[in-house]
Amino acid sequence: MGFKLLSKLLVYLTASIMAIASPLAFSVDSSGEYPTVSEIPVGEVRLYQIADGVWSHIATQSFDGAVYPSNGLIVRDGDELLLIDTAWGAKNTAALLAEIEKQIGLPVTRAVSTHFHDDRVGGVDVLRAAGVATYASPSTRRLAEVEGNEIPTHSLEGLSSSGDAVRFGPVELFYPGAAHSTDNLIVYVPSASVLYGGCAIYELSRTSAGNVADADLAEWPTSIERIQQHYPEAQFVIPGHGLPGGLDLLKHTTNVVKAHTNRSVVE
């Protein structure tokens, strides 16, 4: 069995187990497998329904001669939608809004960016022009300005110390501490036991640490421990890039980060 097929099978099995364990909360999309990078042309966006009122959005972007996937989250909030992270750029984010209108038909009224990198804030200006209120932590807003990236308009308070959590509509926002970046936030959907790890969490097929220019490698494993301790009931975990899975993604990420750190020390 090929690795790609095995990865998709694991996603399907995880979703099936969740649907059985929580039949009222989960209505997993039966329309197909989780979209992969090879299936999404740059400039297009796919939506994948995880649970009743919960979707991931998947886009792709060219970077350094390669094409990478990027995940975000959409959560229903009454007759409105909360968006977590842009679709990595203005063109993708405009396509995301169009796809949401086509498939869901509810307005996106608020959006949260989970850290300051372009795959999370690139497209904020498109959201703002569409009347979406954009939010991020003060740290993310400051770092985005320093980096020359787009800056969300509103500040999220109460997320300055490791372990801080605040309720934001249908989700809980959690600051686990520094990891992929010093400002990275985690998003949890309690009604569906869905954990969105953003770039602080890796997919299972990833074996290298990737972009760690703004990471705190020493603190990252401790931050992941905080996530595990705060959300032990999480059933569906979405990484910032690639295929979702279960809580095993947290341990896998820790292993990859520690291996990278150990290699760096040896070198």
Rank of each mutant, 00 (worst) to 15 (best):
E157F: 13
K8G: 07
T253D: 01
G163D: 09
S16I: 15
D118I: 10
A213M: 13
A21F: 07
D77P: 01
F26Y: 04
V75R: 01
Y175E: 02
R46P: 07
M1Q: 07
V166S: 08
P107N: 11
L173M: 09
I84M: 15
A133S: 04
V189W: 03
S113H: 15
Y188T: 11
T86H: 02
G210W: 06
V212W: 10
E145C: 12
I40M: 04
E203D: 01
L24I: 12
T140H: 01
A178W: 07
E101W: 14
Q235L: 02
V212Q: 04
V28F: 14
A215Y: 05
A19E: 05
A129N: 15
D29T: 15
I238P: 01
N92C: 14
V121R: 15
T36A: 05
T254E: 11
G246R: 04
V212I: 08
V45P: 14
L83D: 14
Y231W: 05
V256W: 14
T254G: 11
P190N: 03
G148A: 14
S181T: 07
S181K: 00
L243P: 05
P107I: 07
L156E: 02
G246Q: 06
S137K: 13
A179R: 00
K4T: 04
G245A: 04
P239G: 08
A144Y: 11
I40S: 09
L156Q: 04
D125T: 10
A209Q: 03
H252P: 01
S162T: 04
I74L: 06
F63I: 08
F3G: 06
G122I: 02
S16W: 04
D214P: 13
S56T: 10
S223C: 12
V132E: 00
F63N: 04
Q103V: 10
D52E: 06
R263N: 10
G89N: 13
T140P: 00
I151N: 04
E150Q: 12
L217W: 13
T14R: 06
Y175N: 02
V132K: 07
S70R: 01
D125A: 09
S191R: 07
G148M: 10
G53M: 03
T134W: 05
Y188L: 05
A15E: 15
G122S: 07
P239V: 10
L195F: 11
V265D: 08
V126T: 14
A218N: 05
S160C: 06
